[in-house]
Design a binder for these strands. Structure first.
Lengths: 265, 265
DNA sequence: CAGTGGTCTAGACCACTGG
DNA sequence: CAGTGGTCTAGACCACTGC
């Protein structure tokens, strides 16, 4: 398990190198970036699974034939991107959506009063779960072709008994083969945690486009509000490693008791 | 200008130190955090102004009597928080809202088609600018007391001729003494850049609460849309150094041609 | 060319965790 | 106590900027 041929470049061979491909424009790439890429590959290939610890910095340093400081800088960036999780005295772990503090890492809707998790666990009701064919815009979002097989899920999240979020979710059928309404309904914990354990798909990053739209097309009934009530429309595309899109999600949020919270740095 | 009494602690005196106050709970604070605090103080006190360069890492290292690596780590964090701006070969600069790339650092509304700045400069119309007394909720947001003097500004931003954003802005009167509708109207560039140059107030961080609300109370007329049209309501509190709130802004965004864009890490 | 930030190393020591 | 991540140093060298 140690000492395969992971060594990056022959140490100070940053000139006229044939390298290992995948780069043409960036004429110069620091060592720690190459190490970061190697660690990323191991993550993507599942050498270490979410929740597990990766080798110690010292071990990685000898494996990659660089100093500990260089490994450290690589891990620094991966930790800043929430791909790894450092814990002093214990080790460095592959980040996961299954931990308590990451329960709602991608859900920015919080109650107007109280703290983010103060309403207790959300009630989740699967309204629909079926195979379908990708429309043009769904295909574009998921980097598929129009007509490709997708899974479509519709569910309602309720807080303190009040239906608050309606979500339409589209997933590429291939990586999620075998996903059913039952497995979704029976699973306790975040949906993205199920994706990790059951389908080996880890969501790493997401983008959201937010609009204000009236409740129509039956959404008013599922959320039990008056037709035409303004809703927050949140279109999310979630990505795995290497910026591969793996989910399109259109959420409709009630904002009479909750609000979308964002911090600008 | 060099060698005042900035030296942090007598080097390795992290035990039972009387320190310089302002800390009780964190039993241990690394050197680079103390350096970061010293740099932050100099920024807050205006020793280096927005857009200017700060001393080189080597100079700061000798001034603070630490190694360059320690200064570097302190600056690393300040740069990550967008307080400083490193430029290789040139120096490290105090971040500013007056630069081209930071034009809309706090405005997350982008056109549905085209790139963020593709519509040309926004047309800004000051609708109102007057002195007022802080209501209970305005006072709470700005850490004032109810009835304290505030400045209230209302303006409309138009893109490609179409009114798109209506903003109500509240500022504490004291730090912004002398701000008038004329100065706002005549100033070219972001409002936060004017705050920096004219009032020595630098916005560092902000929080936004987003809701969907119908256009009422005259907002429909200013935005030239039908009454009741869903609008994105964006309530922002902007902070200076030390988390002091300096602005409350309630924005109403049309989202038929634009959307609020957010990335989740 | 000198000056700046950026990278890399080797080694010492500290703080935290768990058995 | 050993093992982990976290801090700090001193020094060498590299990449970029501008004169």
């Amino acid at each position: 398990m140690l000492q395969t041929t992971d060594a990056p470049l022959p140490a100070n061979a940053n000139d006229a190198s044939t390298a290992s491909g995948e780069q043409l424009a960036p004429s110069f790439s620091p060592l720690y970036q190459q190490i970061k890429g190697l660690i990323l590959n191991s993550l993507r290939l599942g050498e270490w699974k979410p929740g597990e610890s990766i080798p110690s910095e010292k071990d990685l340093a000898t494996r990659f034939r660089v100093s500990q400081g260089t490994v450290r800088k690589a891990i620094d960036e991966l930790a800043a991107e929430n791909l790894l999780d450092r814990r002093q005295g214990k080790g460095t772990f592959v980040a996961t959506h299954a931990t308590q503090q990451a329960q709602f890492r991608f859900l920015k809707l919080v109650p107007d009063t109280g703290t983010p998790g103060s309403e207790g666990p959300a009630q989740r009701d699967i309204v629909e779960c079926r195979r379908a064919r990708a429309s043009a815009d769904v295909a574009r979002a998921l980097a598929l072709r129009t007509g490709d097989a997708v899974l479509q899920v519709r569910r309602v999240l309720s807080f303190a008994g009040a239906p608050t979020i309606l979500e339409d979710i589209w997933l590429p059928a291939a990586p999620f083969k075998g996903l059913t309404a039952e497995r979704l309904a029976n699973y306790q914990g975040p949906m993205y945690a199920l994706f990790e354990t059951e389908f080996n798909v880890r969501m790493v990053r997401a983008e959201e486009k937010i609009r204000a739209e009236p409740a129509i097309d039956g959404r008013e009934q599922l959320l039990k509000i008056e037709r035409g009530t303004p809703l927050l429309s949140v279109e999310r595309i979630a990505y795995t490693y290497k910026d591969v899109p793996m989910e399109l999600r259109r959420g409709y949020y009630r904002t009479d008791t909750h609000h979308y919270f964002n911090t600008l740095g």
